[in-house]
Design a protein around this nucleic acid. Structure first.
Lengths: 330, 330
DNA sequence: CTGATCCAGCGAACCGTTTCGACGATGGAA
DNA sequence: TTCCATCGTCGAAACGGTTCGCTGGATCAG
């Protein structure tokens, strides 16, 4: 029989007589045959691969993203290729080139480079669907799935202000990132709404890393005018802050109230329970892959079609723990 | 000029005159050309893809593995495809089939299925290099990189016994896994060496999950004869145990000593500092990829060659925290 | 000057699958 | 009976690179 018939059987793309089909499937089983995707990709122009590029794979937050993305990709029939740009624009560029040669069908990207070009085209000039995740670098050009960072900062700050705190400090991320800048803006807005403003010394930004947060928080907490409440703008930063407290012999919430944003796995075992905003990571990732899959099928059907970019913004959810307490009047 | 020349330039596989080379590189830059790996793979029979199959992607321990594997794969020139078998044999089988169609060059596998067939062959009948990571399911058949689990259990237990504890309990993993069984054996050996044995009620095994450890530990700690020291056989389990203590109002190490094995990210912020054995995850993953790369190049040079399997066993390192204290004579 | 040597560049086959048009057999309608 | 659809199957081109062997011009020694 011919290879065409085998292809028809494997892909169920044409009617094949029962006996011939039986012989084909028998042969497949006997030879333990599996179609080679390289050849299939070459012909079909797709790869059934989704690329996930995160900005810091060592950050447990992104571990959750990887986990959710693997599940979602698998559910949609894709395999997930994981890359780590490590917050370096040159890595990101290198990775995007690599992705192009792999001819991945779609890209879920936590952008690092502000100069990210929105249109990412493959060799045939078709655009490869790209969804920005968590942050945006080219506002509006490509699809994005993000959290409302300003709302996260505001929710947490409002809560702290409600408790009577006025000396609220924050350790936030890099200000050129929407995640770092947004959460700080949220804090400022919330304070401004009550006629307050944070002290300059109480605003610090740095990489979203535990050790960075530790050293920065230590400085701030050691300083003469210590904030009575501290907003750590990410989960790993909160860990760093808690470690500062332990090392300085301070107690939370008795000596200082702590709140954060963006949960990481294992934080549930921390005592006191951290007051924080949670991100619906799984939902966000699912939405990202849904958009990617939409775009992929759409591009395949009508390469010329150019829909406007979709921007899905999720809302953070404030979870109350016992790491904050009302300010005692001293 | 011909495509052969372009190929020669791109792959640096033959000498090309400077001016022609310049024209080629100029054209590549102008057209923004990148070779399509599907076509390249089809011809070369390789994919520059390494598959990483972990047994539980939600476990922060494996997040570290993913992170290290991405870095190592990238350094060797591979891209990393991540799969999650979720401790289910049927998933593992499905994934291995998928990997074969992707014609990955090598596989780093945390095995789930005891019936794992050691020889994993691709369509041409060549064996695809496979390294078992962390656990072994087909002892001796394929290469493996593991930790000395028995030593880990013994080190921790010896330390606890040195502190005077005799009622040592453990929450360990599934006993059909070398990780769960080995750590328990280590504990038994250490106790037997001093003429001791754990109480049956103080030996519990279950999945390597925080919630499982929580409920199991809670039962054990609530029971009349509570162990004075508890060995949690994994990082996430330790978190579950610590949460039990917090919820029961017990203090560590005053009321009970806790020690564990296999560190996870963020555990450094936990107070008290956990006494534990650390796994050299990065070194282990690097070794795994080094073996894979060796095998890959070896198979390419001489498909018939059959070297004996290599088994690299790393030693755990005991890190002393302050979660254990000498048993007070009561 | 001539024949051998060398080498840059090229043509074409090939990798394994999909896809489309062709083809022969079959069956129903005129 | 003849003619035309219909339908199952097949042959062959195409996908985009790599690779091998060939060619033709330059170089060099005799």
């Amino acid at each position: 029989m011919s290879t065409a018939t085998v292809s028809a059987v494997v892909n169920e793309t044409a009617f094949v007589s029962p006996e011939l089909r039986a012989r084909v499937t028998a042969a497949i089983a006997q030879l333990d045959y599996a179609p080679l995707s390289a050849a299939r990709n070459l012909k079909r122009g797709r790869s059934q691969l989704i690329a996930l590029v995160v900005s810091d794979l060592a950050n447990p937050f992104f571990s959750r993203v990887v986990c959710a993305a693997e599940a979602a990709a698998s559910a949609w029939g894709y395999a997930l290729v994981v890359f780590n740009s490590d917050e370096k624009p040159e890595n990101e560029r290198r990775i995007l080139t690599r992705i192009r040669t792999l001819s991945c069908d779609g890209i879920l990207l936590v952008p690092v480079d502000a100069q990210l070009r929105g249109e990412f085209r493959d060799d045939e000039g078709r655009t490869v669907p790209l969804v920005q995740f968590g942050r945006t670098a080219d506002r509006g050009r490509s699809d994005s799935v993000t959290i409302d960072n300003v709302a996260a900062g505001r929710q947490v700050t409002d809560y702290l202000l409600d408790l009577g705190h006025t000396l609220v400090g924050t350790i936030t991320g890099p200000l050129h990132l929407t995640t770092g800048r947004g959460r700080l803006d949220g804090l400022r807005h919330a304070m401004a709404a009550r006629g307050l403003a944070p002290l300059d010394a109480h605003i610090r930004s740095g990489e979203f890393r535990e050790d960075v947060a530790y050293s920065v928080a230590r400085e701030m907490i050691d300083a003469p005018t210590r904030p009575t409440a501290l907003y750590a703008a990410s989960g790993v930063m909160a860990l760093g802050v808690m470690r500062v407290l332990a090392d300085l012999g301070l107690r939370c919430p008795d000596d200082i109230s702590i709140a954060s944003t963006d949960t990481i796995p294992g934080i549930g075992a921390l005592r006191p329970r951290l007051t924080r905003t949670e991100h619906p990571v799984t939902d966000m990732v699912n939405e990202g892959l849904r958009i990617l899959n939409d775009r992929i099928t759409q591009v395949r059907q009508d390469p010329a079609r150019q829909d406007p970019a979709r921007h899905v913004v999720f809302q953070p959810l404030l979870i109350l723990g016992d790491s904050c307490r009302p300010l005692r009047v001293s």
